[in-house]
């Protein structure tokens, strides 16, 4: 995205002071509304069960001095729950995320290079077909995929969740192709005159220049893996293979149910990494969305 214009641009001077202030106030309200659910999740996770389920609006447990010990109690209670093993689910989720993100980024980058830089016959129709697959809802293919993975002997393992990523994803291919199209072709041609093959151009020119775009793909695919629910729910049968999102559901519905304060602590643990990543890579997120939005 281009550098942002100063926030008090021409547009702002045109609108009256009153509208500007009311717009600002509205934004403050919006921000509070949007952040309140997350804040209340954290607040609830700090309290003992009976205080969580009371009508008070307190932010800290009563007495406030028990906050630290209550945090330790709630979070270690969730982390060490004997039935729902979050440490194992965290590891599984990370395994899937790492393998899947690596595969998705690499393969999508290569396929996008083919679409962007090599004018092979059938490229146009195949690219159109690729875009069309974005409209196919996952539920439509989940049953057959399950049967297929069963034939491959993958049910009962993490493979269904990461192997397909090594064959690229339509949206990421589209995104990277758009980015490559914006890179000057002269660079390739110069390299080609120097005797570089496609392989050389890809690794020495395209990949270094498209690092921001690759980061965007990696980030969004990571978030996708972290959030995915339906595919793990269908393909993972073995409790030791569960991912965090699935663990959360299991924690919610385990026999005897779960008190709200612990459920919120579990929720906080699942959400926290995403929030941290967001703060570290906010710009990449924003850039990635803007790039993927088909503004052209």
């Amino acid at each position: 995205m281009a550098a942002e214009p100063p926030s008090t641009g021409l547009a702002a001077t045109r609108s009256s002071r009153a509208t500007r202030w009311s717009a600002h106030a509205l934004l403050v309200v919006m921000a509070i509304l949007w952040l309140a659910p997350l804040a209340w999740m954290v607040v609830t996770s700090l309290k003992p069960a009976d205080q969580a389920a009371s009508a008070s609006l307190r932010l800290l447990p009563d007495p406030a001095s028990s906050t630290v010990s209550q945090i330790v109690e709630n979070y270690s209670g969730v982390w060490n729950d004997e039935a729902v093993q979050f440490p194992i689910y965290l590891r599984n989720t990370l395994i899937v995320a790492i393998l899947s993100v690596a595969g998705m980024t690499l393969s999508s980058a290569m396929v996008a290079y083919g679409f962007a830089r090599i004018p092979f016959r059938g490229r146009g129709p195949f690219f159109a077909l690729t875009l069309a697959t974005m409209m196919i809802p996952f539920p439509v293919i989940m049953g057959p995929l399950y049967v297929l993975f069963g034939h491959l002997g993958w049910i009962g393992s993490l493979k269904p969740l990461w192997v397909p990523a090594w064959f690229g994803g339509a949206f990421n291919i589209f995104l990277l192709r758009q980015f490559y199209m914006g890179l000057p072709k002269e660079l390739d041609e110069a390299a080609r005159l120097d005797g570089c093959s496609h392989w050389g151009i890809f690794w020495r020119i395209i990949v270094p220049l498209s690092r921001p775009a690759l980061a965007v793909v990696a980030l969004f695919h990571f978030i996708y893996v972290w959030n995915d629910f339906l595919a793990p729910m269908i393909f993972l049968t073995h409790r030791d293979d569960f991912t965090l999102a699935l663990g959360l559901q299991m924690y919610q519905s385990k026999s005897g149910n779960t008190p709200w304060n612990l459920l919120m602590a579990a929720g906080t643990m699942v959400v926290a990494p995403v929030v941290v990543l967001f703060f570290l890579a906010q710009r990449s997120f924003v850039r990635g969305i803007a790039a993927g939005g088909g503004r052209e």
């Binding site: 440490p87 194992i88 990370l94 073995h238 293979d241």
Partner: peptide
């Protein structure tokens, strides 16, 4: 940290 957790983190009984 993620890689470390994958390498050394707790596993199921498999």
């Amino acid at each position: 940290a993620a890689l470390g957790f994958v390498a050394f983190g707790p596993r199921g009984g498999k």
